[in-house]
Design a protein around this nucleic acid. Structure first.
Lengths: 253, 253
DNA sequence: ATACCGCAAACTTTCGAAAATTCGTTTACA
DNA sequence: TGTAAACGAATTTTCGAAAGTTTGCGGTAT
């Protein structure tokens, strides 16, 4: 593949410690897509922020065509919006959206998890143990942590939750679950300050219930995991009730 | 997604007298995307077919960049695939896939329909009556019908089913429902020969149950609607059990 | 002061060509 | 005869610039 030979681009390729994680997907386009998704999910690119091609071209060191393709992907994933002839923006967030997507998440997470447990294998269990271990080594990040820490935590958090449902036999359920999980991730940073110790235990309890093949307990835990987070966000994060439309400000001034 | 909001889609731009109603969707890119989606859904572009830029450029009279953007969209909608540096193909179909997506469809269709009925309004009812009327005017197409007939029927069929769930309050549920509905559409052409009269009655029964605000009956009908179709496909369409991988052949020979 | 029109700057959209890569066939060699 | 290297054609991928829109500003008339 080409990108193995290509050293002189891409800002940071070192932080990716996962080896089998990189199974040479698409070329540069896919790299840009992945980076942009990461930046939106970690709120480096904030909700409602205007995505100008000039800035993006500089930030990701690529051409407009490539950017357009990546943005197109993000739009259909629901992470970006585009309108008429006035470019792209990061998808907005709102309490209503969080409530709605969390409701669906409860169904998809429990459905996929139950199926995964029924079809669990030894390698599945091993990956759960492994990914939980890696997640547990990192303390849950706070809002003022550097972006690189957030990125790494997010990656391990996703890998852990993905590992739980990995043996689910329904590709479509897994697909939608993954999209909603990413969406929910954007809201997580807002509640992260209050939820440190509680969250870590939840992940452990969930892991044990899953490894014990206890479908009901596991599904109950993940449901509670989702619902408490959304309730917390509704009550403790005041800004969410508004549609947060004013994050776009002049940066030249 | 924009397409949820759009009740009357279609390329006809003339009859729209309302000024702010038609805020002209994306430009050429969106047109190409819509056309390609239509062609895949109507199986003009067949499953597993290779999508070469040369042919596509000619067919849709546009540039590679625009095509790439549209294809990128289709990939994340699950209607196309792309791999490494060897271009795009139409997404394959298989019985396993149809079973899987139908299972999820049952949940999403009943969920959205129940919610829509509870939140139904007069204009919602009116649109249901109207869209059913239009659908009913067209006989269900057969496999040897010209493409234009298929296209028109597909459009009215989608509009009818969209109208049923239009007042559902969950954007995410509607979004995923719409995607799965499109996916299922691709399989419909295979079972269409056998199911003519039965189908028309089902649509009528469903309409009446919905207008009577009978949630249980309506949900039962739509569930049966989905399940009978998939069972029919499983038993009556022999080709579906295979993965239909050999549609790609030489055309120069 | 306000509303309106038009011009200029900024930005988005579209295109075609250059660069890179894959695929199929031929050719060289054991 | 079989394997592998190599060349050529076909196709994909990437890029930068031209064409087309929107936005913002300033001037003019009401």
């Amino acid at each position: 593949m080409a990108k193995i030979l290509k050293m002189p681009d891409a800002p940071d390729r070192s932080a990716t410690t996962a080896p089998q994680d990189v199974l040479r997907e698409d070329a540069a386009t896919f790299d840009v897509l992945r980076q942009m998704r990461e930046d939106i999910l970690c709120c480096v690119l904030k909700p409602n922020e205007r995505l100008r091609f000039g800035e993006l071209r500089q930030r990701y060191d690529t051409s407009v065509g490539t950017l357009r393709e990546a943005l197109s992907h993000l739009v259909s994933e629901g992470l970006a919006r585009t309108e008429a002839g006035r470019g792209f923006t990061v998808a907005p967030i709102s309490l209503a959206d969080f409530l709605d997507l969390s409701e669906l998440r409860v169904y998809l997470e429990t459905r996929t998890l139950a199926d995964a447990i029924r079809n669990g294998t030894d390698t599945w269990e091993a990956e759960i143990v492994s990914s939980y271990f890696l997640l547990n080594k990192l303390a849950a990040p706070r809002q003022d942590d550097p972006v690189s820490v957030k990125r790494e935590w997010r990656k391990r958090h996703k890998r852990y939750h993905d590992s739980l449902v990995a043996t689910c036999t329904s590709p479509w359920s897994l697909h939608f679950r993954s999209e909603l999980f990413d969406q929910a991730q954007r809201y997580h940073w807002l509640t992260m300050i209050h939820a440190r110790s509680r969250r870590r235990n939840e992940h452990l309890d969930l892991r044990d219930a899953v490894l014990a093949r206890d479908v009901d307990t596991a599904c109950g835990l993940i449901e509670a995991h989702i619902r408490t987070t959304v309730e917390q966000a509704a009550s403790e994060v005041p800004g969410l009730t508004l549609d947060m439309a004013r994050t776009t400000k002049r940066r030249k001034a």
